[in-house]
């Protein structure tokens, strides 16, 4: 099987999510036989490292930031055909999400978004697992075409070093932009919630935006990102970009700490794939406790500062 991994390297930086994509491709090649080509959109600076995570070849296409999803999909399509790729893997983020549907049609391929597993083979077709019903269930999906395009859910595999660096080969691929990218307003310093390893999240129990200090302190102690429940975003205590849940952002961090969130089914759907959930709530009947690994029944305004202090003490701060 020839596997092609699309890496968005437009910021000239290889991220952990990029290592994860290549390592995932490596696991598939290891299980079913095959080779892994990394197709890097960008200068290719630093992309040699992808060899360590399992890429047999790394190709970089000369770039500028004005590539849009239409241009990227045409470039990936041309390259995938050139290399005879059977399986194309893209990231499940704002760069990869638009590509899957387009590439499915352009490559005459089956497609699955947000896959979670190294696929099994059934009657010579790949079978992928993905989350459905916004985190309330999983489905096993058989791809019926010979060619397949998938996006990998972020934080599904921990990348490991399995090889050594490889040379980056520059390639020239025609692109067909259809949308003009005028510019990007950057928000510095924040890790996107889907990529976050630790998240501290607040609900209506926080009682008001003026009380967020205790949450921010805890997040800082844990080196965590901050999030909130839908009612909190709806009343404007926190920005919509922090809304985690079925109609907001679905997250899967290693640690999710919920302060004053009762745990409505829509919220649970967005966080249930977290590895460890800690719930702090004064209501012992809060449904969130049933979905939690650890719980503290108590007033969050007393418990959260104590937890912050205990973590700082543990970390020797």
């Amino acid at each position: 099987m020839k596997i092609l991994v699309y890496i968005d390297n437009r910021k000239n930086k290889i991220k952990k999510t990029d290592q994860e994509l290549v390592y995932y491709a490596h696991l598939i090649a290891q299980k079913h036989g095959g080779s892994v080509d990394a197709f890097v959109l960008g200068s290719g600076e630093g992309a040699e490292v992808l060899g360590k995570y399992g890429a047999d070849n790394v190709y970089a296409v000369a770039h500028d930031e004005t590539f849009d999803a239409n241009g990227i999909s045409s470039a990936v399509k041309n390259f995938a055909e050139d290399k005879g790729a059977d399986l194309v893997i893209v990231p499940f983020n704002s760069s990869g999400k638009p590509l899957v549907g387009m590439l499915s049609y352009m490559l005459d391929a089956s497609s699955v978004t947000g896959v979670l597993n190294v696929p099994e083979v059934e009657e010579s077709k790949l079978v992928f697992k993905k989350g459905v019903f916004s985190g309330k269930a999983f489905a096993y999906i058989k791809t019926l075409k010979d060619k397949v395009v998938v996006s990998l859910m972020t934080n599904s595999f921990s990348p490991e070093e399995v090889g050594s660096e490889v040379n980056v080969e520059a390639v020239n691929i025609p692109v067909d932009n259809k949308v003009k990218v005028v510019g990007i307003d950057k928000v510095e310093g924040k890790v996107p919630l889907p990529e976050a390893e630790r998240i501290v999240s607040g609900g209506r129990g926080m009682k008001g935006p003026e009380n967020w200090g205790v949450l921010l302190d805890l997040a800082k102690a844990l080196d965590a990102e901050t999030a909130c429940s839908r009612p909190v975003a709806d009343v404007g205590w926190r920005p919509h970009s922090e809304h985690v849940g079925q109609t907001g952002i679905v997250v899967r961090p290693n640690l999710y700490v919920a302060l004053g969130i009762s745990g409505a089914i829509q919220h649970l759907a967005g966080v249930s794939s977290s590895k460890v959930i800690v719930v702090i709530n004064k209501d012992p009947e809060a449904p969130f406790f049933k979905a939690a690994d650890y719980g503290v029944v108590g007033d969050l305004f007393e418990v959260a500062p104590k937890l912050t202090e205990a973590i700082n003490k543990f970390k020797g701060k």
């Binding site: 089956s110 269930a137 999983f138 058989k142 049933k290 650890y294 503290v296």
Partner: peptide
């Protein structure tokens, strides 16, 4: 171009540990 073979529900948590 795809076929859903089966579904699965998330594994229930083994129970919350209260501190």
């Amino acid at each position: 171009r795809v076929e859903i073979l089966k579904y699965e529900l998330p594994k229930a948590k083994s129970g919350v540990k209260l501190v």
